[in-house]
Computed example of a mutant assay.
Amino acid sequence: MATMLAGRLEISTRKFDVREVPVPEPGPGQVRIKVHAAGVCLSDVHLIDGTLTPLFLETPEVTLGHEVAGVVDALGPGVPPRWQEGQRVALEAGERCGQCPNCVRFREPCLQIRTRGVDYDGGWAEYTLAGQHTLIPIPDDLPFVQAAIVPDAVSTPWGAVTGTGEAQPARPAGVWGAGGLGVHAVQLLRLIGAAPIVAVDPLEAARERALEFGADLALDPEDPTLRRQIFAVTAGAGLDVAFDMAGVPAVREQAVSCLGMRGRLVLVGLTPEPLTVTDGIGFSFRGRRLLGHYGSPAGAVEQLIELARYHRVEWSRSISGTFPLADAATAVEHLERKEGNPVRLVLVP
Rank of each mutant, 00 (worst) to 15 (best):
P151R: 08
R107D: 06
L57C: 08
D141Q: 12
P60V: 11
Q99C: 02
Q168N: 04
W158S: 06
W158L: 11
P101H: 01
E67S: 08
R96Q: 09
P169V: 13
Q146S: 08
P137A: 15
V72L: 05
E92C: 11
R96N: 12
G117M: 07
D119R: 02
P169Y: 13
G163C: 12
R105W: 09
G65K: 08
G86A: 04
R105T: 15
E92V: 00
P139K: 14
G117D: 07
E58G: 08
Y120L: 11
E95S: 13
D152T: 00
S155H: 03
N102A: 14
H66G: 12
D73K: 05
Q84G: 02
R96W: 05
Q87T: 00
D49W: 10
E58C: 10
Y127I: 01
P172Y: 03
T63P: 02
I149Q: 02
F106I: 01
D152A: 12
L52T: 02
E92P: 00
L111E: 15
R171C: 14
G70H: 04
L64A: 10
G177W: 05
Q112T: 12
G123Y: 12
G177I: 07
L142A: 11
R107K: 14
P137S: 15
E95Y: 05
H133A: 15
T156N: 11
E95V: 12
R96P: 02
C110T: 11
R105G: 05
P139E: 13
R88Q: 03
C100L: 08
L111W: 01
R82N: 04
A167K: 07
L75K: 01
V118D: 05
H133T: 14
R107M: 09
F56A: 13
G159I: 03
P172F: 10
E166R: 15
T115S: 13
E95L: 14
R116F: 10
F144Q: 04
P137Q: 07
S155P: 00
A90V: 11
G159T: 08
V118M: 13
V104K: 06
P77Q: 12
P80A: 11
T115L: 15
G163D: 11
E126H: 00
A178S: 15
P157Q: 03
V150K: 01
W124R: 08
Q84A: 13
A167Q: 01
V68T: 15
A147S: 08
P172H: 09
G177K: 07
N102D: 09
V62T: 13
E61V: 00
E58H: 11
G65C: 09
